[in-house]
Amino acid sequence: MSVMDENLDKFQKVLKSYTDATSAHSDNLHMSVQKLPGKSSYIMYEFWQDRLSWMSYLQSNSSKDFQRCIIDMLEDAEVVSTMLLPASWWIMTND
């Protein structure tokens, strides 16, 4: 997500609220946000128990509020990519 410079402070507050809510969700396995050096760009990683859990969370108030808030703060539309990983990978790396 590339954030317009004039919206950076507000975006960071909205992002913090979203990450707190998402991380606390019982089906969220892990959440990470990376800020690209020298840019106002962020990469967000969310690991969910399963696809259904993630799809359900997209309909939650927290997710919808985040999407509504950031729509005018970004330089371009956000890019969303999904990748399905075997549950065994998560279990092996977090034992």
Rank of each mutant, 00 (worst) to 15 (best):
G38D: 15
Q34E: 08
C69K: 12
T19R: 02
L8F: 11
F66K: 05
V14I: 04
Y18W: 10
K13Y: 03
W54D: 02
L58R: 12
M44R: 05
Q59T: 04
T82E: 11
S26K: 06
S23F: 08
M73N: 07
D20Y: 07
H30Y: 13
C69F: 06
S63K: 01
M92E: 03
D50S: 14
Y45V: 11
S26T: 14
V80R: 14
W89L: 06
N94W: 07
D27V: 02
Q12V: 03
E75Q: 03
Y42G: 00
T93G: 03
E6C: 04
M73T: 09
M4H: 11
S62A: 05
D65C: 15
V33E: 00
V33C: 07
M44G: 04
K10Y: 06
Q67V: 01
S23R: 02
C69G: 08
L84Y: 02
L85Y: 11
K10A: 14
V3E: 00
W89I: 00
R51W: 11
R68T: 02
M4Y: 08
T22W: 02
D95R: 12
W89C: 05
T19G: 01
D9K: 13
S62Q: 07
N94G: 01
E78F: 09
G38T: 14
S41V: 10
T22R: 05
L29G: 13
T22E: 00
L58Q: 06
E46P: 00
M55R: 14
S81Q: 07
Q12A: 08
M44A: 14
K10V: 01
Q67W: 06
F11I: 06
G38N: 13
N7P: 00
I71K: 14
D95A: 09
M44L: 15
H30A: 06
S17I: 00
N61A: 02
F11K: 01
M92P: 04
S32P: 00
V80N: 13
L85M: 07
F66I: 01
V14T: 04
N94H: 09
E46H: 13
N28R: 10
S17C: 06
V79P: 09
W90E: 02
W90K: 08
N7K: 13
T19S: 11
V79Y: 05
S23A: 11
I43P: 11
S62E: 07
D95N: 15
L85E: 10
Q34G: 08
N61I: 12
D76Y: 09
R68S: 04
D50V: 15
Q67C: 10
M1C: 03
L85T: 06
V33S: 07
I43D: 12
D65A: 15
L74E: 08
Q59F: 05
L74F: 13
M92C: 04
D95S: 12
S60P: 04
I71M: 15
T93F: 07
M4V: 11
N61T: 13
R68K: 07
M44N: 09
L52T: 08
D27L: 01
V3Q: 05
Q67E: 02
